[in-house]
Simulated scan of single mutants.
Amino acid sequence: MKKAGDNYYDLLLEIQQIDFVIIELNLYLNTHPNDQAAIAQYNEFVQRSMQLKKNFEALYGPLTSFGYSFSPTPWQWGKAPWPWQV
């Protein structure tokens, strides 16, 4: 298994934590669709997640494939340890 530096793991952990909050807010909003404060939080965390993923991919390569991430030349998908390998 490939190894990465501490920053790789720290950034990946932060992405996972933010995405967990997004999932929980999504579940809450399914039953409370008019909660404007929760919607604002959801949108804030989605924006933060998108920025973290953009930063991660700029440093370490794509988090996902199949049309969710752009790739520079040369193809980057196999370069860094994949998120499920760490």
Rank of each mutant, 00 (worst) to 15 (best):
M1H: 09
K2S: 04
K2M: 10
K2I: 03
A4F: 05
G5A: 05
D6F: 04
N7D: 14
Y8Q: 02
Y8L: 07
Y9R: 14
D10I: 15
D10E: 12
L11K: 13
L13H: 11
E14D: 08
E14G: 03
I15R: 06
I15G: 06
I15F: 10
I15S: 04
Q17E: 14
Q17M: 13
Q17A: 12
Q17Y: 04
I18C: 11
I18L: 09
D19W: 00
F20A: 12
F20L: 11
F20W: 03
F20E: 06
V21W: 01
V21D: 00
V21M: 01
I23W: 02
E24Y: 03
E24D: 12
E24N: 12
E24H: 08
E24T: 12
L25V: 07
L25R: 05
L25N: 05
N26H: 07
Y28S: 06
Y28P: 12
L29C: 07
N30G: 15
T31P: 03
T31D: 15
H32M: 11
H32A: 13
P33I: 02
N34I: 03
N34A: 08
N34Q: 13
N34E: 15
N34C: 04
D35L: 09
A37Y: 09
A37V: 15
A37S: 13
A38R: 07
A38I: 04
A38Q: 04
A40S: 03
A40T: 11
A40P: 01
Q41H: 06
Q41W: 00
Q41T: 09
Y42P: 12
Y42L: 13
Y42R: 08
N43T: 06
N43L: 01
N43A: 00
N43Q: 09
E44S: 07
E44I: 03
E44Y: 04
F45I: 04
F45D: 00
V46E: 01
V46H: 01
V46C: 03
Q47C: 03
Q47I: 02
S49D: 02
M50Y: 06
M50W: 01
Q51G: 00
K53R: 15
K53D: 09
K53W: 02
K54G: 04
K54Q: 14
K54M: 13
K54V: 09
N55W: 01
F56A: 09
E57Y: 05
E57N: 14
E57C: 15
A58E: 09
A58W: 00
L59F: 07
L59D: 09
L59Q: 14
Y60R: 05
Y60L: 13
Y60Q: 08
G61Q: 05
G61K: 02
G61M: 05
G61S: 06
P62D: 03
L63N: 11
L63W: 09
S65A: 13
S65R: 10
S65I: 13
G67T: 01
Y68C: 06
S71M: 04
S71H: 06
T73L: 04
T73E: 05
T73G: 00
P74R: 02
P74Q: 02
Q76P: 12
W77I: 10
W77P: 02
W77V: 06
W77K: 10
G78Q: 08
G78H: 06
A80Q: 11
A80R: 08
P81C: 10
P81H: 03
P81I: 07
W82T: 06
P83K: 12
P83Y: 13
P83N: 07
W84L: 13
V86C: 14
V86S: 12
